[in-house]
Every structure is written in C-alpha cells, then in structure tokens.
Simulated scan of single mutants.
Amino acid sequence: MFTGIIEEVGKVSAFKKTGNFAVLQIECCKILDDITIGDSVSVNGVCLTVTKCGEKSFNVDISYETLEKSSLAYTSYGDPLNLERALTLSRRLGGHLVSGHVDCLAKILEIKKESGAYRLRTQYSSDIDRYVAVKGSISLDGISLTVSDIPAERVCEVAVIPHTFENTVLKYKKAGDYLNVEVDMIARYIEKLLKKETKADKLKESILKMQQLEDFL
C-alpha cells in the first residue's frame, strides 16, 4: 500500500526484457537506506518487489501482466521513474490510499502552466470513466492527484503544484506521452456494495411478489 507521495525520482540503469518477462534495475539514492529484498516499491505507480539491492541501485522483476497493462513495457535506459516505499503504520497518509495496481494507461493531451500551477489534461479508457469524479482522487504514475474538472467523456484535468511537478517525472512529460492510472479504490468498494444492495433489494422484491401471489391463490 502507498500514499501517492513521491519520495524520489530514480533512473533506469538497466532494462532486460526476455519474452513476457523483464528485469529492471533502478539507480537511486534516498530510498536505498530503508529497503531490503522482498520489500514492495511503487515504480511509476506500479507495485513491484525488490529482488536485489546494491549500493546505488536495486532490481525488480516485471511480469507479463504488468508489461501488458503499464507503461513500464516501454522503459529504456536513462528514463526517470517515480519511486515510493510502501506505507508504514507510523507514516502520515499525505495523499490517498494507492495499491500500485494499474487500471489502464492515460494519454497526456495537454500540460499547461497557468496561475502558478500546471494543468494536466489526460484521456483514459472508458472502463474507468465511472470511477473518476470531480474532487475525487486519482493516481497518475504513482502521484496522488485530485481531479479538478471533467471537460468531456474519458477526459479529466488535474492541477499540479510546482513542487510536485518539479519533483516527479511530470517535468519530463509532454503531450502524447502515457501515464499509469489507478482509480480511487474506495470508489470500487462503494460500487461493489451498491451492486450487492441492488441484488438484495431485487431478491426481496421477488420474494414479496411470490408471497402476494400465494396469498391471492
């Protein structure tokens, strides 16, 4: 589990892809003092397991499913990566609960600086449209952001403060690039609960009708 507050921007020092499997080596500094083999790390919003630790880098394995659903499949040497260690019970939850399970990719339509901040507009899959709401949370490349506007179907805008922009991979992005998207998990749980309630209501209604029919007969 993560918060969506990026701790460090690392750099790809090696990327070896063999068929539907890949090994990624990430050069970094800050987070190395507190990670060990087996730990979970968010890499551009993808939860990955540390398989090797070095003095200046660590390795993670990437499965075929992750390669299919995330932008990590297009990683190359020198690319910057958002990094966040897993949440601990003693840390403040500064962003929102992020699982590191990518829902889809979003295409950047526009990045524009205005009024001292940056407006980021993205287009995403219709599969997640119902989970995106104004003032709701969304994770883009592992960054916890708040939806500021939904100008069209499958399109949302977020406002990015200068600190976040300068200290994440967003400063390297441009229109046409893709970001890993994870919707707010609370929205998914609410939807599931509502579906269960709807099914229960329909069952109650069906039973009531059967009882009324039996009374009539």
Rank of each mutant, 00 (worst) to 15 (best):
Y64T: 12
E114Q: 12
D149R: 07
S13H: 00
G54E: 10
E191N: 09
T75G: 07
F216E: 15
Y64Q: 14
S144K: 05
I37E: 15
L170Y: 05
Y64L: 09
T198E: 15
T75F: 15
K16Q: 13
E8W: 06
R121K: 09
V160H: 02
I138A: 07
K113P: 08
T164W: 03
C156E: 07
G94C: 07
I128G: 03
Y64S: 13
D127S: 10
I35K: 00
E84L: 06
I108R: 04
K204F: 10
T3Y: 06
L217G: 14
Y178T: 01
K174L: 01
L120F: 02
M1N: 05
C156T: 07
G100H: 06
D33T: 15
E182L: 02
E7P: 03
V158N: 08
V46P: 02
K199M: 09
A159Q: 06
F15D: 08
K199E: 10
S206D: 14
T51I: 14
E166W: 04
E55G: 02
S76W: 07
S40V: 05
A22G: 03
T18P: 02
D127R: 09
D79Y: 07
K107I: 02
Y64V: 08
T18S: 15
K202S: 11
L179A: 11
S126Y: 09
F2W: 09
M210W: 10
A133N: 05
C53R: 12
L140M: 11
L203I: 09
S42W: 08
F58V: 05
T122D: 09
V147D: 06
M185C: 10
T198F: 13
S148E: 09
V160K: 01
E84F: 10
K112E: 14
L203M: 10
V102Q: 08
K17G: 02
V12S: 03
T122H: 05
I161N: 08
V155T: 13
I62G: 01
G38D: 15
A86Y: 06
Q25T: 14
F165M: 13
I26V: 10
K195R: 11
T51E: 15
E110N: 11
Y178H: 11
I138D: 13
T122S: 08
A187D: 11
C29L: 14
E214P: 03
F2E: 08
